[in-house]
Simulated assay, not measured.
Amino acid sequence: MDNPKVVICMSTYNGEKFLAQQLDSFIAQTHQNWRLIVHDDGSTDSTKQILARYADLDDRVRVVDDEGHLGIKRAFLSLLSKEDAELYAFSDQDDVWHEDKLAVLVARLRGEDPSVPTLIYSRFDEIDAQNQILPDRSSQAVYSTRLKDFLLINTATGCTCMVNHALRDQLIRPLTSLRLSAIHMHDWWAALVASALGQVIFVNQKLVSYRQHGNNVLGAPTGGRFLKRFGRFLEFRESRIVDSGTKQAGELLRLYGPQLSVDQTQLVAGVADLFHGWAPIKKQRFLKRQGLFIRSKFLNIETILLLWMFPSQRRRVFSRNEV
Rank of each mutant, 00 (worst) to 15 (best):
F236W: 14
D59P: 06
G223P: 02
P4I: 09
S181W: 01
I37M: 09
P174H: 08
I127T: 09
V64T: 02
A20Y: 01
M185I: 06
D187E: 10
Q313K: 10
V208R: 00
G291Y: 05
W34Q: 03
C9M: 06
A166F: 12
S296R: 03
P311H: 07
A55H: 03
A220C: 10
D95K: 00
S312R: 09
S319Q: 12
L151P: 08
Q284P: 00
L151C: 05
D41M: 05
H186S: 06
V96M: 11
S181A: 15
Q205V: 12
D149S: 14
I183D: 00
A103I: 01
Y210K: 07
M162I: 15
W189P: 04
F293R: 10
R137M: 11
D100Q: 15
Q22F: 02
H276K: 10
L152A: 05
Q284N: 11
D136V: 02
E126N: 11
G291R: 04
G158T: 00
S115L: 14
L79E: 02
N3Y: 03
F202P: 11
R232W: 13
E251D: 07
S11M: 12
S296L: 09
Y121I: 09
K17P: 00
D128Q: 10
L151M: 13
L167S: 06
F18I: 01
L23C: 06
L292Y: 07
E16I: 01
A220Y: 13
Y121P: 08
S144D: 14
D92L: 02
K288C: 07
N204P: 08
L147D: 00
Q29R: 07
A196E: 07
D263I: 10
L307Q: 04
G270P: 06
N154W: 04
L102T: 03
S138P: 01
L23A: 01
R60F: 09
M309R: 03
A89F: 05
G214P: 12
A141M: 12
H184N: 13
G257Y: 15
L192I: 11
G219D: 07
V7G: 07
G219H: 07
F286H: 04
T44R: 06
W34C: 03
Q284E: 13
V64D: 08
I281R: 04
V271P: 01
F275D: 00
V268G: 08
L307W: 00
E67G: 02
L171K: 00
H186I: 04
Y256E: 08
C9A: 14
H31A: 14
R295P: 06
T176H: 14
A107Q: 15
S181G: 14
M10I: 02
W278N: 05
C161V: 04
H213W: 10
K101H: 14
L152E: 03
L151D: 08
V64N: 02
R316N: 06
L77S: 01
H39R: 11
F202H: 15
R229W: 12
S296F: 01
A28T: 11
D41C: 07
M309S: 04
N321E: 15
L152R: 03
R123H: 05
T30D: 09
R168W: 04
R320P: 04
H39K: 10
G245K: 04
I281G: 00
V203T: 07
G224S: 11
P114C: 13
